[in-house]
């Protein structure tokens, strides 16, 4: 059992938790992920590490409440326990040698992008960040990004905060204005990462994306998380989750991610109905 030491709502659909898991906290690095189960009959879901405190033995997770499992997780409060928490899994984001990097985060993906930005900042790199959200209410981690970026651009789809538009707009503008990035690191919805790659490809700027496919064991056993990268089958859990964005087959990844859409909707509805009953 793993205790929730701290819980905070970042916006109505995104929650942050610090989980007491000293063995995981000791090893976790930016870019890696964990797998958790909320309770004994729960499903295993991967969440990317959003931070860690090695002294306190805690690992920070930030999750969007999208399906049955994240709804159940969000029901848990400070001091309560979740059944399983295993990691750190996958490979850490490679940051060695990078001097100037643009971090592009979309929605809850910003939670994963933040520790990468912080790590780059701590190693002395110049960090530009572009973070995008649907609207002002969904904005998260602005101050945290500000603290580790020499330049921060906030975008919203509806213009309710920052600039209106998608994250690729300022990215393209900056590149065209002559800014030379060693690398662009994009973390967010698949469609956003696909367009970031389309933006950087003509300029041949190395672009890393963090993939978050459907996964069960997360240790290289089930093969559910496979992706086509550079024409080869790769497994996000052991080969990733970071990949060269130019080589990822995003259309295939998007199709595969919707495999259980119907089931997930039923799970969500079932949970909401249960919740309504409890409230009555």
């Amino acid at each position: 059992m793993y205790r929730i030491l701290n819980k905070r709502e970042l916006n109505p659909t995104v929650t942050m938790m610090d989980i007491y898991a000293p063995l995981v906290a000791k090893k976790a690095q930016a870019g890696q992920f964990i797998i958790l189960r909320v309770d004994d009959d729960g499903e295993r879901i991967p969440l990317t590490v959003a931070g860690y405190n090695r002294e306190k033995g805690t690992v920070k997770i930030i999750f969007q409440i999208v399906g049955g499992t994240t709804m159940r997780l969000n029901q848990k409060n400070e001091g309560e326990f979740i059944a399983d928490f295993v990691g750190p899994l996958g490979c850490a984001t490679k940051t060695e040698g990078l001097k100037k990097v643009c971090i592009v985060g979309g929605g809850v993906g910003c939670a994963i992008a933040l520790p990468v930005a912080q790590k780059l900042y701590e190693q002395g790199a110049e960090v530009h960040s572009v973070i995008g959200f649907r609207n002002k209410d969904l904005l998260i981690l602005e101050n945290e990004f500000k603290a580790c970026s020499s330049k921060l651009t906030v975008m919203t789809d509806d213009g309710s905060y920052g600039k209106q538009g998608v994250v690729t707009l300022p990215l393209k503008e900056t590149i065209e204005s002559g800014e030379r990035y060693d690398e662009v690191i994009a973390i967010g919805p698949l469609i956003m990462m696909k367009f970031v790659v389309a933006t950087t490809r003509p300029y041949n700027i190395p672009t890393t994306v963090s993939m978050n496919p459907i996964m069960i064991d997360g240790t290289g056993m089930c093969g559910g998380c496979r992706l086509t990268v550079g024409g080869k089958t790769k497994f996000a859990c052991v080969d990733g989750p970071d990949f060269n964005g130019f080589e990822v087959d995003f259309d295939e990844a998007m199709a595969r991610s919707s495999m259980y859409a119907d089931f997930e909707k039923r799970e969500r509805d079932a949970f909401c109905n249960l919740f309504k009953k409890e409230a009555n």
Partner: peptide
Amino acid sequence: LPRFMGIPGESLKGVYSANE
């Protein structure tokens, strides 16, 4: 890691490794 055959269509929805 499960092996795949390397034939077209192995990433379609509805293709599993036996392990998964």
